[in-house]
Simulated scan of single mutants.
Amino acid sequence: VGALSEVFSHTDGTLKLLGVEARALSLRETVAPSGYFKVPAFMVEVLPVWNTDASEVTLASYRTHGTSLAFVSRDGRAVMVADPAHSLANLPYTGGVGILILLVLATLFLVFAVRPYYLSHRAETTANILE
């Protein structure tokens, strides 16, 4: 376990860490901006890409673990954190009882709508056998 450090993001929400060793970093948001949810703690694994003779790191690639809100950008050069206020996982659970009632009613409707069809089909098959 390495040393703990506290870093602050810029006002635009970006954070740049220079001179980071190739290892796994654990990141945890301590205070979320007003009106936002805190991002769950996550890990960023820094993986070096070496030149052909392994004498110099030419690029760092990243891998994230711990939350789907943290992901590597399409170009692979940055770790992005999704806006948790707009994440589906953080939407308020509203209307749950109403949705549950609708699901129960729809299931009952299906049972009562399909049963007569099934019985008439069965009766027709039985009548065809008896002829």
Rank of each mutant, 00 (worst) to 15 (best):
V1W: 13
L4A: 11
L4M: 14
L4Y: 07
L4I: 15
S5N: 12
S5F: 09
V7N: 06
F8L: 11
S9L: 03
S9Q: 04
S9V: 03
H10D: 14
T14N: 08
L15C: 02
K16P: 00
L18M: 05
L18V: 07
G19I: 02
V20K: 10
V20D: 08
A22F: 01
R23F: 04
R23V: 05
R23E: 13
A24R: 15
A24W: 07
R28M: 13
R28T: 12
R28K: 14
R28A: 14
T30N: 14
T30Q: 10
V31L: 15
A32F: 04
P33W: 00
S34F: 10
Y36R: 11
F37W: 07
F37G: 06
P40F: 02
P40N: 02
P40R: 00
F42L: 00
F42A: 05
M43N: 10
M43V: 09
V44T: 02
V44Y: 05
V44R: 08
E45I: 11
V46P: 03
P48N: 03
V49C: 04
V49M: 01
N51K: 06
T52I: 13
T52G: 06
D53T: 10
D53V: 09
A54P: 00
S55N: 13
S55M: 11
E56M: 10
T58F: 04
L59F: 13
L59G: 04
L59R: 15
S61P: 00
Y62E: 06
Y62F: 15
R63C: 06
T64M: 04
H65P: 00
G66Q: 04
T67Y: 05
T67P: 03
T67C: 01
S68A: 15
S68G: 13
S68N: 14
L69W: 10
L69Y: 10
L69E: 08
F71Q: 06
F71E: 09
V72M: 07
S73C: 01
R74D: 15
R74A: 15
D75L: 02
D75P: 00
A78W: 02
V81T: 07
A82W: 00
A82Y: 04
A85G: 12
A85N: 12
L88P: 09
L88N: 10
A89I: 13
A89Y: 03
A89K: 13
N90M: 04
L91A: 07
T94R: 11
G95P: 06
G95D: 07
G96S: 09
G96F: 04
V97K: 12
I99N: 09
I99G: 04
L100K: 05
L100F: 05
I101T: 07
I101D: 03
L102Q: 11
L103Y: 07
L103M: 11
L105D: 08
L105V: 15
A106S: 13
A106F: 14
L108K: 13
L108Q: 08
L110E: 12
L110W: 13
L110A: 12
F112G: 07
A113M: 01
V114K: 11
V114R: 12
V114F: 15
V114P: 04
P116L: 06
P116S: 08
Y117E: 03
Y117Q: 09
H121A: 12
R122I: 01
A123T: 08
T125V: 14
A127P: 00
N128H: 09
N128I: 02
N128F: 06
N128D: 14
N128P: 01
I129D: 10
L130P: 01
L130V: 12
